[in-house]
């Protein structure tokens, strides 16, 4: 079976393991817990550092104190980071929401046609669309830079919305197509027999059962556009770009960087995607499983 198109859905991994399976000997169980806990600690090291450092004041600047709790907890770093990042946070939302909505609508229509309202060579067209998901955007960047100047799309959020919509189409199409493949053809046929045209079938039969896929796709697009840095660095500045640009400027900009402020900033900038992950992790995993990641 195809690897991209038949990537497993969310249920298989989010449901707990099958109870019928043997859980193994006590020794094996201890070993498993040892591995799991050690890994847990290692994975959480950066989180500990972020959290602790973000609450440290000047008094904790000595390298010998780096791994300890602050001597005096302070929220100054958070206040400073918030001031530096909040305009960019708003811009990020203004970029990500329209980008996610538009690309998922397009992806839904594409997915429907490519699986349930096929035309000749639909499979070839689908493969050509999928290729767009893997290309390094470096390979289209120079013409893009020139295009944005030529067609006068203002630098900053408007350019970025356009880019995230267009380059989001392949992954959105893939996720919806995989989902619609599971919709029984009889459902489509019966709508057709009832005289419904393509649009009627799409809007009254397919779209209403697409909500779970929309959640997956919207979250996926939200996260990848929110976390994007490559397009941001080419098409915006710290003053008109998304929060990744502002954070990079805060942490690596001309000013002498203060780790406490940068770390508070990193936490603030990650909060929306982390919240999404915590609250809707199941769907988030669904996006991951669809077989793609954008770097």
């Amino acid at each position: 079976m195809g690897a991209v198109t038949t990537a497993p859905g969310t249920r298989e991994i989010t449901g707990s393991g099958k109870p019928s399976r043997r859980t193994g000997s006590p020794g094996w169980r201890t070993f498993r817990y040892a591995v799991l806990l050690a890994s847990l600690l290692l994975v959480l090291i950066p989180v500990y550092v972020l959290f602790v450092t973000s609450f440290k004041g000047i008094g904790d600047a000595s390298p010998s104190r780096t791994w300890f709790f602050p001597q005096a907890w302070t929220v100054e770093n958070w206040a400073e980071a918030w001031e530096a990042l909040s305009p960019a946070l708003i811009r990020s939302f203004a970029m990500v929401i329209p980008a996610a909505v538009l690309s998922s609508l397009l992806g839904s229509m594409n997915g429907f046609v490519l699986s349930r309202w096929r035309f000749p060579h639909a499979n070839l067209v689908f493969t050509l669309i999928l290729f767009g998901m893997f290309i390094p955007y470096q390979a289209v960047m120079i013409p893009l830079v020139q295009l944005m100047i030529d067609i006068n799309v203002p630098n900053g959020i408007p350019s970025l919305i356009l880019l995230h919509v267009v380059y989001g189409i392949p992954i959105c199409t893939l996720i919806f197509r995989n989902y619609y493949e599971t919709v029984p053809m009889e459902l489509i046929e019966s709508a057709r027999v009832d005289g419904a045209g393509m649009l009627r079938t799409y809007f009254s039969v397919v779209l209403p059962i697409s909500i779970p896929s929309f959640v997956v796709v919207l979250l996926w697009q939200f996260t990848s556009a929110w976390n994007d840095f490559l397009f941001a660095v080419f098409f915006s500045t710290a003053n008109n770009g998304p929060v990744t640009m502002a954070l990079n400027n805060l942490a690596n900009g001309a000013m002498l960087s203060n780790y406490g402020v940068s770390m508070a900033g990193a936490l603030i900038a990650s909060l929306p995607t982390l919240l999404v992950y915590v609250l809707l992790g199941r769907y988030f995993v669904g996006g991951l499983m669809a077989g793609s990641v954008k770097g």
């Binding site: 890994s39 847990l40 994975v43 959480l44 950066p46 550092v49 972020l50 996260t223 929110w226 976390n227 994007d228 840095f229 990744t244 954070l247 990079n248 942490a251 940068s262 770390m263 900033g265 990193a266 936490l267 900038a269 990650s270 995607t273 982390l274 999404v276 992950y277 992790g281 988030f284 995993v285 991951l288 770097g295």
Partner: peptide, 16 residues
């Protein structure tokens, strides 16, 4: 916990 770093941007994790 193992999966959560995936939700964070490289720019943010780069800071730490």
């Amino acid at each position: 916990v193992y999966l959560f770093p995936m939700a964070v941007s490289f720019v943010a994790s780069g800071v730490v």
